[in-house]
Design a protein around this nucleic acid. Structure first.
Lengths: 215, 215
DNA sequence: TGTACATCAGTGAACGCGCGTTCACTGATGTAC
DNA sequence: TGTACATCAGTGAACGCGCGTTCACTGATGTAC
């Protein structure tokens, strides 16, 4: 818990192996998808016996949980540092897309179809809101001239997800819409539903983003 | 092929069992997701031995292909008959959502993360364009007053997916955007990413649709 | 209507595979004196 | 610096399971005369 300092060599080694396990897990997910994640396969790939991994993870679910946590954290960090560097909403959107394309299965792990048979612990939702917080901040910094919609009124009474963000409902709505619209284009692209359609997904994404921002 | 008539009792029986297998497959998919689809499990559920199913499907992949085909067909039929009954775009959107909610895994099977290890035959893309054709028709019937975007120009040169539809690029773009935006909201809802956020997904969908149509 | 034959649905055994997970163990690494 | 002990990473065997798929077969259903 409060043990961030003074790592013994053994602790250091453990952390290193845990990281290596996760690396191989990502590789495996990248090729076969998350639902086919197998501890034994990872062990074999690392030149270890299957049971050895149980020293590091209590089981498959705990590993997946950690991967999901890392994915959320990575996305939040990426967006946060982009925002800190002065990125506007368009740049944030492209940052999101670049992050997703860098490892499609990582994106799909957190925003795609849930892994069958896996149940996430309760605190995962909390971590997922970190990335959202960056978007909320970015939208809050942008003056809105749109008339309030009926949904804005509904949102005003259902703010659990906003984490107490002080932005007005209309802004929250726009941030939410920003997310769903980009996800719509992005998830279809990552899942391969645009292949064979002819057009360039990057341009569709840019067009969607443009429409989103200019109104 | 051209054998639509004169079914023998045996052919009738075969068709019936094939249908029953698919029913059980859908049940299984609804609970465990498509990646966990197992021929043996279906056979057991039907009170048959595993190998018996090989009389009806050459293997797991052929069964999945048929399920995907059926899903696309079902969606296209649903949209088509709604359109034939005079549905406008808003009604079509709600028809789409109702169809998706009726069986979330069926929607996710065709529009979600691809099933790992499964490779669809080439003609699947063709069937998937049927639903899109209904949307294209609906948008073509609606006068557009929007200025052309740079993406419209790109689309004009990349029309493989439109199946020769005579609508202008701007209209094709709007139909495409209609799809991606509704998918964005819908897929996040179906994957459970709105649970715990507080608001009503139906209202977000309606708001997105409203924004989509009023401009 | 009755018999002889062909078709074909479904079975059970078998193959080889990989999975998650447990357990008792060996042997290396680190700690205390 | 050296010895005695504790810790703990990793192994190999084992358990029970389910998977896809093949094969030779039984027995019921349909067909031809």
């Amino acid at each position: 818990m409060a043990e961030t300092a003074a790592k013994t060599p053994r602790e250091r080694y453990r952390a290193q192996v845990r990281a290596e396990i996760k690396e191989h897990a990502w590789e495996q997910i990248a090729t076969t998808g998350a639902s086919a994640l197998s501890l034994n396969a990872i062990a074999k790939q690392m030149g270890m016996s299957g049971p050895a991994l149980y020293r590091y993870y209590a089981g498959r679910d705990e590993l997946i949980t950690e991967l999901i946590r890392d994915a959320y954290r990575s996305l939040a960090d990426t967006l946060r540092s982009a925002a800190a560097a002065g990125a506007d909403l368009a740049t944030l959107a492209h940052t999101l897309r670049a992050w997703a394309l860098e490892d499609p299965q990582r994106y799909l792990l957190i925003y795609g179809t849930p892994v069958p048979g896996y149940h996430a612990p309760a605190d995962i939702t909390l971590i997922s809101s970190e990335a959202m917080a960056v978007l909320l901040d970015a939208w809050a910094a942008r003056p809105s001239n749109r008339p309030a919609t009926p949904f804005d009124a509904h949102l005003a009474d259902h703010l659990d997800w906003a984490g107490g963000h002080p932005a007005p409902p209309a802004t929250l709505h726009r941030a939410l819409s920003f997310w769903t619209r980009l996800h719509g284009v992005l998830s279809l692209e990552l899942a391969g539903h645009f292949t064979g359609m002819g057009f360039d997904p990057a341009l569709l994404f840019a067009a969607e983003l443009d429409d989103l921002l200019t109104r």
